[in-house]
Design a protein around this nucleic acid. Structure first.
Length: 873
RNA sequence: GGGCGCGUAGCUCAGCGGUAGAGCGCUGCCCUUACAAGGCAGAUGUCGGCGGUUCGAAACCGUCCGCGCCCACCA
């Protein structure tokens, strides 16, 4: 091939010019599933790697947060699968008791029906029907995302096996006296009509009114303050601090409770803060958790004044009013009696709301089932404390400890219909029998099963082992428990993670459910704002996948995934990721057109050009780096590293440099085909866990092999060549420098310029052809030669710019560069004159400064000469 | 009230003791035979304020200001 002959690219490959994700994603995913790549074999000899899906709510659809979480889990499991692990990514869904029941009740409401119109059995049937309809939606979304889950093992928290698990552990805990029934103050939602646990209550500051009410008459009168005046109907005492001199004489006496005609005692209790308000507190044991405690200590009666709808039941003028109506009516009545001595309005205080429907919680005395968490939580805390389970990022450990170490007993009964019904029967005389899954309920007249169901987190707490067949001692359980890592959001650290820890340790004889807890943040919009439907910034991941492809969405999410921190994401960024996918696509097309191959051994390093040795050296480094980052769950960093390696180094530099080589042909071109194939092979593998579709399409085309999903994860070759790396770095500097010069001179990128290259005896000599091609340089011509650059190796590139050069512009630029170089020199010199610095700084740093000085001096000399050479304007 | 975290380029964020970085956005030139979803070149920051430690601080310590989140039985 002669120098002047046009470069003839290889015939077009079968790949289209632009990557069209929609054409390949669906079929690829189906093929993966058909071939069973994602299934996990319990009989395998390979080491296990297990991750469970945080089960999404059946009635929902996946939002960006799920897409994010799934991307991370999928990336982890895909890499482990490639590394030769027997990998299980366990799919399934959660029945999500209260949430689902609410959804279906809302559906019924559209038909003007309530669940009571249907009755329990028909209602539950209706929920199952709903589950059947919407469950498929989630599976569909997961397939679109490319989730490599073991579909044949899909589970549902209400399916038969998992229900067995629930009953089994309930029975065990009951027999171990870790589950009990007790009447206590619970968080009651008057809209959902059920008890909820402490963490299902969301507190927020609401404006209320603090009224101070005078109880009693004359010298013995006391003033108490309340934001919930309606509860006074149920007051059974006034409490003061035992050391409070103001009230000491009243303790033990009785006082008149306004509006009721009742007299209530004054008791002394440590709980009262004498500094707060008047130092006297009304005590309503049936409607306030603290007051309940006081009542217990002093043997006070509990007088409930509201029903489950928070309607006043106490006889009298307020009966039948709802709690808010009653509040104002009672304040009005008290005012009429002259009992209101002060009002503070608005009075901002923290009020609990139902996390499901936002209704204000009403503390209510009621009989419920409880888990005694003491020993369970202790074990859950210890497993992290002694390092058997690592929480990542580690800052989250503190939150975890604060919670498990200060946990109150867990209220697990819910007055709902959708869920696991409590396996307890009550006899005609109040006998209680807890029945395990293999036992028959008691027969005979008058035995009835508890009406309540279990908190939904009770069953999801078993997920890491119930999905594997527990309580049966299955092969899967033996193989895949404990899970390798749990990937989930920090928002359910308490709800779910801590409960899995407690149950896992308890049920599996002290073996924690996973080795590592990797907590991710929440997806936010491009301005860092929380995504919510009501705010209008929520995004359906399907929309973006339709427009840009699943890989683009996945890469964007992975790229934002710094451990434990929230992830802002905007459409622009998905677009950028789509561009990246397209770039990979086209770079591979180029490689295919030029005969890149993965066949045969890599050429020996001694034979390879510096360019090839450089890229192979960098390839080894990137494998090492990316591997480390995967192990550390640093998805953002590994994505970033791959992005820059692929785009900047491989596509912008290496591929450009290979063009010259391919033109020239010969052994070097043959070797380059193999090296280019190698670089793409490894790069596609490294990218595959994050962007599975585009890499699979390209890799199978490049290699002719079956699938990347089951390909071997690349090992670091160990090949490093620092000299080649430095040489190419120098080459890059020279080229950049000349390009800048050309750009400053207003030369169009394609315009050929005559140039004289003085590269003999320098490291750049072998790269002359590449330099000429990349810089569009023609053989030397006559006239003025603008010396564009002097690389550190001492080579000179002179451009013949007679007639075209803008001398003023060039002088200006050179003068500016000279100033910068002189400043740099002065700084370096000052540093090297500083004795304290020389004495204390590490040698490496001092050497670096010396290097900077040398370079600055060379730059000054070079620029000076260039200035001298400039013709007069 | 307790705990955790954050304030770095227009926006969103890396960096966490040795010459200020990325993506997007912005400016200029270019349809250079893989890619205009592209190429090349470029501009942009008293790294929240003030003190301190250090030869050297965006980074470590103190303090102040401004945000965010979690926990808590503030009548």
């Amino acid at each position: 091939m002669t120098e002047n002959s046009a470069f003839q690219p290889a015939p077009d490959s079968e790949l289209p010019k632009t990557y069209a994700p929609a054409d390949v994603e669906g079929p690829l995913y189906e093929r993966w599933v058909e071939r069973g790549y994602f299934e996990a074999d319990a009989k395998s000899d390979k080491p296990p790697y297990t991750v469970v899906i945080p089960p999404p709510n059946v009635t929902g659809s996946l939002h960006l947060g799920h897409a994010f979480e799934h991307t991370l889990i999928d990336a982890l499991t895909r890499r482990k699968r490639m590394q030769g692990y027997e990998t299980l990514w366990q799919p399934g869904m959660d029945h999500a008791g209260i949430a689902t029941q609410n959804v279906v009740e809302r559906e019924l409401a559209k038909e003007s029906k309530s669940r009571h119109d249907l009755g329990r059995e028909a209602f539950v049937e209706r929920v199952w029907q709903w589950k059947g309809e919407s469950g498929g939606q989630i599976s569909g979304q997961m397939k679109r995302l490319g989730d490599g889950v073991a579909w044949s093992r899909e589970r549902f928290t209400m399916d038969e096996g998992l229900s067995q698990a629930v009953q089994t552990i309930f029975k065990r805990l009951y027999d171990d006296e870790l589950i009990y029934r007790a009447e206590r103050i619970i968080n009651w939602c008057p809209r959902c009509l059920t008890a909820i646990s402490d963490i299902e209550v969301e507190y927020q500051d609401d404006d209320g009114e603090l009224v101070s009410i005078r109880y009693g008459e004359g010298d013995d009168a006391l003033v108490v303050a309340t934001t919930r005046a309606e509860t006074m109907l149920g007051d059974t005492a006034v409490a003061v601090h035992p050391d409070d001199e103001r009230y000491r004489h009243l303790v033990g006496t009785e006082i008149e409770l306004p509006l009721t005609g009742r007299r209530i005692p004054i008791v002394a209790d440590e709980h009262v803060d004498p500094e707060f308000g008047t130092g006297a507190v009304k005590v309503t044991p049936a409607h306030d958790p603290n007051d309940f405690e006081i009542g217990q200590r002093h043997g006070l009666p509990n007088i409930a004044v509201m029903d489950e709808h928070a309607i006043i039941t106490a006889h009298g003028p307020f009966q039948g009013l709802d709690r808010l109506e009653a509040r104002s009516a009672i304040v009005a009545a008290l005012r009429a009696e002259g009992r209101i001595v002060a009002e503070k309005r608005p009075y901002t205080h923290s009020v609990g709301h139902c996390s499901r429907c936002k209704t204000t919680i009403e503390p209510r005395l009621s009989m419920q089932w409880w888990v005694k968490v003491g020993p369970l939580a202790k074990a859950a805390g210890d497993a992290v404390r002694d390092g058997r389970v690592a929480i990542h990022p580690q800052e989250m450990e503190k939150r975890y400890f604060d919670w498990v170490d200060n946990l109150h007993d867990w209220c697990i009964s819910r007055q709902l219909w959708w869920g696991h019904r409590i396996p307890v029967w009550y006899g005609p005389n109040g006998e209680v029998v807890c029945v395990g899954p293999d036992e028959q309920p008691p027969s005979g007249e008058g035995w009835t099963q508890d009406n309540d169901v279990l908190d939904t987190w009770f069953s999801s707490g078993l997920w890491p082992f119930s999905t594997l067949g527990w309580p049966e001692q299955t092969e899967s359980l033996a193989k895949f428990y404990p899970n390798s890592v749990l990937v989930t959001g920090y928002d359910i650290l308490f709800f779910w993670v801590a409960r899995m820890m407690m149950f896992g340790l308890y049920a599996m004889d002290g073996t924690p459910p996973f080795h590592t807890i990797a907590l991710h943040g929440m997806v936010r919009d491009q301005f860092g704002k929380k995504m919510s439907k009501s705010f209008g910034n929520a995004v359906n991941p399907l929309d973006w996948m339709d427009t840009y492809g699943s890989d683009a969405l996945r890469f964007t999410l992975a790229r934002g995934a710094n451990p434990g921190t929230d992830v802002p994401i905007g459409e622009d960024w998905v677009q950028a990721s789509r561009n990246f996918a397209n770039k990979i696509w086209n770079a591979t097309r180029f490689a295919l057109m030029n005969g890149a191959t993965v066949e045969g051994e890599l050429p020996p390093a001694e034979r390879l050009s510096a360019t090839n040795r450089w890229i192979l050296s960098r390839l080894g480094e990137i494998v090492e780096e990316v591997d480390g980052l995967y192990e550390d769950y640093q998805f953002a960093k590994l994505s970033e590293a791959l992005y820059h390696f692929a785009w900047d180094e491989v596509f912008d530099w290496y591929v450009e440099l290979t063009k010259t080589t391919f033109q020239e042909g010969g052994q070097e071109a043959e070797d380059t085909k193999r090296v280019l194939g190698e670089v793409l092979d490894v790069t596609l593998k490294l990218l595959h866990p994050v962007v599975p579709f585009v890499t699979e399409t390209l890799w199978t085309t490049l290699t002719g092999k079956e699938s990347l999903v089951v390909a071997d994860w690349p090992a670091d070759s160990g090949f490093r060549d620092e000299a080649a790396e430095r040489e190419i770095e120098t080459l890059q500097q020279v080229i950049t420098e000349v390009r800048r010069f050309r750009s400053d001179q207003g030369l169009q990128p394609g315009q050929k310029v005559p140039a004289r290259l003085a590269l003999d005896g320098t490291a750049l000599a072998p790269h002359e052809a590449a330099i000429r091609q990349l810089l569009r340089l023609q053989p030397e011509g006559e006239g003025f030669h603008a010396t564009a650059t002097l690389p550190v190796s001492g080579a000179t590139v002179s451009l013949d710019l007679s007639g075209t050069i803008d001398v003023d512009a060039e002088r200006k630029r050179l003068t500016k560069d000279l100033g910068a170089a002189e400043k740099e020199k002065a700084q370096a010199e000052a540093k090297l004159r500083n004795e304290a610095f020389l004495a204390k700084a590490p040698d490496q740093v001092v050497d670096k400064i010396r290097g900077r000085l040398t370079k600055a001096e060379a730059d000054i000399e070079r620029i000076g000469r260039q200035l001298e050479n400039l013709p007069a304007a």
